[in-house]
């Protein structure tokens, strides 16, 4: 247990502190994927022309498959001998981390090993954007609809509900992650998922209720009414279930819950501004109220199809 904690702490450190420190000392200053069959490496000093251009010096593999070597077709060294472009005979699978080892680069018999992966921060942002827009929980996953149609009549209500919901979902998802990672999984209690997660959600709602009431009564007055509704929203229980299914780590969990909450807020706010406008319209009597809200939500869903297949990072 402690191990995992330390590892997460270290990842955090690596993410935010090390990139700044590590530069300058390492031979490899910068690396990344170029075109679909290319890895670009920048060195901190000029390297030997012949050794760097010799494809036999390179060993490249995808991290999960160390025994499958990828064929380096050609290495093109820039004229200042400080950056090289590794061309492969086949397109690379950029979703995987690639481990590159270069032999004899600085001195004979030396080895330089580094790994190339898409930026982790980009990946995290990808989760956020995906949960918010591409797989918006309301318009493309069809969750949380009862609350969505119930609270999207007025903009003020929508804002209040959206913000309350975002706070609760982030807190409860993080708690669920800890429970799942350190209690449910190690002790083989996965079948208790539903009970535990719904319990944690109720607990969070109760806690936010109490804290808000004491700390900021004015805020409580405007948001308090939504707290009960939050429990009846299926998004709030879907997020812990999804993160347990996908074995997300702490940061991914945070991003997913933030995206889910933000996406819900966005959907609610847009819908409410549209519905306020519709108040003035002459809606056919059979469609008044919920049916027309469904039709408009369907039109929103059609528009949100534009995001499908979007891959930002």
């Amino acid at each position: 247990m402690k191990n995992i904690m330390t590892r997460h702490f270290l990842t955090l450190l690596l993410l935010f502190v090390l990139p700044g420190l590590a530069q300058g000392q390492e031979l490899v200053m910068d690396k990344g994927f170029g075109a679909d069959n290319e890895i670009i490496v920048t060195f901190s000093q000029a390297v030997d022309q012949d050794e760097a251009a010799n494809t036999a010096n390179y060993t490249v593999y995808e991290e999960p498959d160390p025994d499958i070597r990828l064929q380096v077709k050609e290495v093109i060294l820039a004229s200042d001998q400080k950056s090289a472009s590794l061309l492969f005979s086949e397109p690379l699978n950029t979703t995987q981390t690639h481990v590159v080892t270069i032999a004899n680069l600085v001195a004979p018999q030396s080895q330089t090993t580094f790994s190339v992966a898409k930026s982790y921060l980009g990946y995290l942002l990808g989760i956020l954007v995906s949960a918010m827009l591409i797989n918006n929980f309301v318009f493309t996953k069809y969750l949380g609809l009862c609350v969505f149609f119930g609270t999207s009549k007025r903009k003020d209500t929508a804002k209040g509900m959206g913000i309350t919901f975002t706070i609760v979902i982030v807190v409860s998802a993080i708690m669920s992650w800890f429970f799942y990672q350190f209690i449910l999984k190690p002790f083989d209690l996965n079948f208790l998922q539903i009970v535990i997660f719904i319990g944690l959600v109720s607990l969070t709602v109760q806690a936010v209720d109490t804290v808000l009431r004491k700390v900021n009564p004015a805020l409580f007055n405007s948001f308090g009414v939504f707290l009960v509704l939050v429990i009846a929203n299926c998004v709030i229980i879907a997020v812990p279930l999804i993160l347990a299914d996908n074995e997300y780590n702490f940061f991914e969990t945070f991003m997913l819950s933030l995206g889910a909450g933000g996406g819900f807020l966005l959907a609610l706010y847009l819908m409410s501004s549209v519905r306020e406008r519709m108040d003035l319209a002459n809606i056919p009597p059979t469609f008044k109220g919920v049916p027309i809200a469904f039709i408009v939500a369907g039109q929103f869903a059609l528009a949100f199809l534009g995001f499908s297949g979007l891959q930002i990072f």
Partner: peptide, 21 residues
């Protein structure tokens, strides 16, 4: 397609409203 669910449910509700009226 998933987004059609909204239209179908909305139209069916309207249909039941129509019958009721």
């Amino acid at each position: 397609l998933p987004c059609a669910g909204f239209f179908v449910v909305g139209l069916m509700m309207a249909f039941f409203n129509y019958i009721e009226i």
